[in-house]
């Protein structure tokens, strides 16, 4: 990535030298390129990650730069790929395993849940599994029920896994580099709708630490806590709310496990109202846990309104575009729920 400077650009407003505009997808690729240049143990393995460039084009042309030894195309064998990742990670390599759609982690679940997550503890700390799993989740592409799920709660529910959900291009890069460093299996749940979105991304070998939430917006009236694609929807909603005189704080946990409860509780105490937004189905979703954490803490005493959740309907994602859209929280749903919360309480 290069920053283009032309004579036509006003000298007063150059992009800060240390960032560059790139897509979420390019930012992930940049992170992988940096990690592979630095550490020969890092390699990528997955279906069609080579010449094809990945099902969503994320590995792109990396195979031309790095070669097929470290950008390894596999057969369609998620369980095998995941297990090969675990075995390689136990013995000195640092695999990045790409699963084409997070739905297909179902095929690989034994290796994720019973092997990768448990080995370090179960074996008394004798070995660790420094592996990264990258998988896109979420709906919005018309791919229907088996290609659109938001399964983060499955992984958060398994002790031994770390789980991150980058919502911006910069976080996609910074969190992935932290995940690669981490001595544990880290599940990185990307979002298909974000791949083509752009943002300012710090250049070079940067980090976004695991376990630290982002607070992209601060306001006094309510705290909106959102994950994944819902972060950008929450920010868009916050703009609309501001025009209506409602000032929202937006919190993006970024890492679901380990969770930055401190930031959540601090912002909730400051506003006294909380709206939790996730794309995943409501029942036993990640935000159910956030709600419980708030309820159990001293922040509870600061609440002026009941905690409100906005979540996907408890249904498989339907194909028809109107139905698909109606299945998960949209900007207007966030605006309506936030307005209700502030006006009623």
């Amino acid at each position: 990535m290069t920053i283009e400077t032309t004579a036509a650009q006003p000298a007063a407003a150059p992009a800060p030298a240390e960032t560059v505009t790139m897509t979420y997808s390019e930012a992930i690729r940049d992170a992988m390129r940096i990690a592979m240049a630095k550490d020969p143990a890092v390699f990528i393995m997955g279906e069609d990650v080579g010449t094809y460039g990945g099902a969503f084009g994320v590995t792109g042309e990396l195979i031309n730069e790095i070669g097929p030894e470290r950008i390894r195309d596999t057969t369609i064998s998620e369980l095998g790929i995941m297990g090969a990742g675990v075995g390689a990670a136990m013995t000195g390599m640092r695999p990045i395993v790409e699963i084409q759609f997070s739905d297909f982690t179902a095929q690989a679940m034994d290796q994720i849940a019973n092997q990768a997550a448990k080995i370090h503890f179960m074996l008394g700390g004798a070995v660790s599994v420094p592996m990264v799993i990258r998988a896109p989740g979420g709906s919005g592409t018309g791919a229907a029920a088996q290609h659109s799920q938001s399964l983060e709660a499955w992984f958060v529910h398994i002790p031994g896994l770390k789980v991150v959900m980058p919502a911006t291009a910069d976080d996609a890069k910074g969190l992935l580099l932290s995940a690669i460093d981490d001595p544990n299996p880290v599940m990185v749940i990307e979002h298909k709708l974000l791949y083509k979105t752009s943002g300012e991304v710090r250049t070079g070998d940067i980090r976004t630490p695991l376990g630290v939430a982002a607070v992209p917006r601060e306001g006094k009236d309510l705290t909106i806590i959102a994950t994944g694609v819902e972060v950008s929807r929450a920010l868009e909603a916050a703009e609309i709310l501001a025009a209506d005189g409602i000032e929202a704080t937006v919190v993006d946990p970024r890492t679901l496990k380990p969770l930055d409860s401190d930031t959540i509780l601090r912002t909730v105490k400051a506003t006294g109202r909380v709206l939790l937004v996730q794309e995943a189905v409501r029942t036993l979703g990640f935000m159910s846990e956030v709600s419980a954490i708030i309820s159990e803490s001293d922040a509870f005493g600061y609440l002026r309104a009941p905690i409100k959740r906005l979540a996907g309907l408890d249904i498989p994602i339907p194909y028809a575009p109107k139905l698909e859209r109606a299945s998960v929280p949209q900007v207007e749903d966030i605006v309506a729920a936030a307005t209700d919360l502030v006006r009623k309480w």
């Binding site: 791919a143 229907a144 029920a145 088996q146 290609h147 498989p316 339907p318 028809a320 575009p321 139905l323």
Partner: peptide, 16 residues
């Protein structure tokens, strides 16, 4: 075409 008269009532699409 995501129609109510489709085999899956528009809920499955091509793959289902």
């Amino acid at each position: 075409l995501a129609k109510e008269t489709g085999y899956c009532r528009g809920r499955g699409g091509s793959m289902h």
